[in-house]
Design a protein around this nucleic acid. Structure first.
Lengths: 263, 263
DNA sequence: ATTATTGGTTCAAATAATGAACCGGTGGAA
DNA sequence: TTCCACCGGTTCATTATTTGAACCAATAAT
């Protein structure tokens, strides 16, 4: 792996939950040599990707990422486009809805809205990395992305988050096949206890999944008719979203989705 | 310079005006060897910082930057905080107002609003890099940031954009001194013909300038009383912004600003 | 059909990355 | 105070990666 990739991997450790990381903490998290780490962090700092808390010396993300995100959003306005649909679904079904994009090691929610006026809410931390194998977003993406990503994900150790987290590569492969035939993914407490989720992919110009729309619900509120309502909403939204983004829904998926909507 | 920094410098070439860049174009823009470039671009692509237009093979910014910006904004919500003040000023004075943060080679506008209902408008491209020496934003930041940045900027070649662009390091240093005594910076067609601008810095916890609030106006509309109105608005907004961000206005600046407001 | 231009690859030579040991400062604990 | 542990940061010989001129393959232009 190139030095560049090694250094950029360091940025993946930051999240809303962990906004600042010191040198020693990085060392324990990565088991990279302290000298090397310091050089990499300094390079990232010099490039504006990190800055240092001048009191604690801990590193946090720097201003360069803001500019880049603005340019990216100007180029491919996914966030802005996605917001409309997430809001719409959230308003309709009164649950926590989010859209996520794939990163190297999982999905990252780019926008979420909790339309709920329920007492029990699903907790949600934007910009957290959602593991591919344990979340409906991740599975929905894997199922409709290219096989190399699937192979890559399954070749690594599959962390268990709850008693229901699938950690067997064969099981997951079978599940991906099911997801392909159904046109959506769902999970039952595989990432967080008491939380189920449903996700559909949305597609890019090549007809490959470039992101997902998903809903997370406390398991107590899931029942068959609600499940069907949710799926229909997601399918409709994803269809319109693909149109907005200039994406192509693969014909087999389009067929499956059409039949779901009729039902 | 480290390989990491060299690779990350490549990202600076992207802007709203230039969202996609091919290998050969990169080569002409950077005069880095094609082999090296390709390796770097591939590393950035593998890390999610770039992705490729699958038809033209040109590179554009990737989804990783979106996640990072979300985390950064969650950590230090500058963009969100700044919007309120930019909007307020724009609504009051009906001109193009923007807030900018320093990047490696200039300022980058993170938010802009054109409050104008004038016929002649200043053109503005968000996420463009505004050179330090030719814009009021850049000068305002230099004047109140640490001296190493000033030395760094002045040691490089100072590009001329118009007939009025200051390109002499001594002149600029003198101007920075003036800016420090006035508490604000202004330029007259030094970056674009027919456009003048005024900027004030805002400060971080250490009392160092971490960004700027600025206004760009067609020179035809500038006059003394308007100039004074603008400066007052900027000073008030920056003061409140510093409070919101937990920043410290250096005492000498605070004194200067207070006297301006009384006038 | 030919040429120019594109993105991408190769491999010996040149250079930068690495990491064990080290430094200096800070904040307890004895 | 003295001691120790822990922090961020630095050094320099060893090692591994980066580099770039030449090359390849595919596409677009003439």
């Amino acid at each position: 792996m190139s030095t560049i990739e090694k250094a950029l991997m360091l940025l993946e450790h930051f999240s809303s939950n962990r906004p600042e990381i010191g040198l020693t903490e990085f060392k324990t998290r990565t088991s990279i040599d302290k000298g090397t780490l310091h050089r990499h962090l300094t390079a990232l700092k010099n490039s504006g990707f990190l800055e240092q808390n001048y009191l604690t010396k801990a590193y946090r993300l720097g201003p360069a990422v803001i500019r880049l995100a603005a340019v990216r959003e100007n180029t491919v306005p996914i966030v802005k486009t996605v917001q409309y649909y997430v809001d719409r679904i959230a308003d309709n079904i009164h649950e926590l809805v989010h859209a996520a994009l794939p990163q190297k090691n999982g999905m990252s929610a780019i926008y979420a809205k909790d339309g709920g006026y329920h007492g029990v809410r699903v907790n949600f931390d934007e910009a957290e990395i959602l593991p591919f194998h344990a979340t409906s977003s991740g599975l929905a993406l894997l199922a409709f992305h290219d096989d190399t990503l699937v192979a890559n994900v399954l070749s690594k150790k599959l962390v268990s988050f709850t008693d229901s987290t699938p950690t067997d590569a064969v099981d997951i492969k079978a599940n991906l096949e099911t997801i392909r035939t159904h046109g959506f993914a769902f999970t039952d407490q595989s990432y967080e206890d008491e939380v189920g989720s449903v996700a559909v992919p949305f597609f890019g110009v090549k007809g490959d999944a470039i992101g997902t729309l998903a809903i997370a619900i406390p398991v107590s509120r899931i029942n068959k008719s609600f499940h069907e309502t949710i799926i229909k909403q997601l399918i409709v939204a994803s269809t319109e979203l693909c149109r907005d983004l200039g994406g192509q829904i693969p014909t087999n998926v389009a067929t499956i989705w059409a039949s779901k909507l009729e039902a």
